[in-house]
């Protein structure tokens, strides 16, 4: 690991001020000289591996604003402070009651120890775990723009079948983000240009020919909160995660499902897919396919077909298309059968 300067800014404005002094408008947050750190469960790992090499770390854990550490439940929805730890949100009674899909997505991620360290904002910004990205000796367009992609023709079992480009097929491995994108969450951020709201669906960028540009954030911008709108019918929601072992593994395929049912038929469905796409993935075609339909195995399968209509397999990940469809069918039927 390279030596670096470590600072603990006292509040958000101080953190933004330092960051803007040591970064430029053109800097990507993941490539800037100065970078923010919260739980450190992803960045510290990548610094040890030489994948990330900021020479200045701004530790956000001492920021004094109390709201950063609070979960506020109101009639408008839920507001998660950016520094709330994954474990706190997963165990929060109102989160579990009102948004099971959020609690599930957090509970099924990582390990207890990591959930106690990782912040919610850091979690949504976690970077891909692509083996070829993680290790600096391989060609990787995301790590070194223009260097090529070793995963494309390599061992790509865990890689994406949706949202990939000729430059990058790395999967977005997060779980929480699938719940957030399904629920139309909003990110609040503050930077040198002021505060703003970003719809969650616009936070992450498709790789296209610039896979090194991962999010909409500026290098001096800090996520301060994640807001989830009120949605009474989100009580009928769940997150299904399929993986090689029972715990502590990334999803091979996952589905976040929120259902508004009128008897047997679907008034509205929200669907997001994890483990199969390059970014948090809202499956709007699948949602549309279900609208007004009776939810049964046949309509669920039709929705799953729609969700994966554009999927593109590589040598080792073709099974993910079938697995992704079945995961969604199972998630839809299990969500339908929830007692709420």
């Amino acid at each position: 690991m390279r030596p670096f300067i470590y600072e603990q800014p006292a509040d958000i404005s101080a953190a933004v001020a330092i960051a803007s002094r040591f970064t430029t408008d053109d800097d990507q947050p993941t490539r800037a000289n100065a970078q923010f750190i919260a739980g450190g469960t992803n960045l510290a790992d990548y610094m040890k591996l030489g994948v990330a090499a900021p020479n200045r770390l701004l530790d956000l854990n001492r920021l004094e604003e109390p709201a950063l550490r609070q979960i506020r439940v109101s009639d408008d929805g839920i507001r998660f402070g950016a520094l709330v730890r994954m474990g706190e949100a997963a165990d929060h009674g109102e989160v579990k009651r009102r948004y099971p899909v959020i609690a599930d997505s957090l509970r099924l991620a990582a390990s207890g120890q990591i959930r106690n360290m990782a912040s919610l904002a850091g979690n949504v910004l976690q970077r891909t775990r692509c083996e070829y990205f993680r290790e600096t000796s391989w060609a990787c367009n995301k790590r070194v723009p223009g260097s090529g992609c070793a995963a494309m023709e390599g061992f790509n079992r865990q890689h994406a079948v949706l949202g990939a480009s000729d430059a990058c097929i790395a999967t977005y491995h997060g779980d929480f983000a699938q719940a957030l994108i399904a629920l139309d969450a909003v990110i609040r951020a503050e930077g040198s240009r002021g505060a703003r709201k970003i719809p969650f669906a616009r936070l992450h960028r498709l790789p296209r020919d610039t896979p090194h540009i991962e999010t909409d954030l500026a290098a001096d911008e800090i996520i301060t909160a994640i807001e989830v709108p009120a949605m009474p019918w989100a009580r009928r929601s769940r997150y299904l995660k399929i993986r090689d072992r029972e715990s502590y593994a990334f999803a091979l395929a996952s589905a976040a499902v929120v259902l508004d049912l009128d008897g047997d038929s679907v008034r509205e469905a929200r669907i997001a897919l994890g483990g199969v796409a390059t970014v948090p993935w809202r499956a709007r075609a699948a949602e549309a396919a279900l609208q007004g339909k009776k939810l049964d195995e046949a309509s669920a399968s039709a929705a799953a077909e729609a969700a994966f209509a554009d999927a593109e397999p590589r040598q080792h990940n073709a099974f993910k298309i079938e697995l992704g469809k079945r995961t969604l069918v199972r998630a839809l039927l299990e969500t339908r059968d929830m007692k709420v």
Binding site: R129, E131, D244, R245, E246, S247, Y248, A249
Partner: peptide, 12 residues
Amino acid sequence: DLQDYLVPVNAD
């Protein structure tokens, strides 16, 4: 590494 080289965990 142990992220991608899987062995059983307690839950298995």
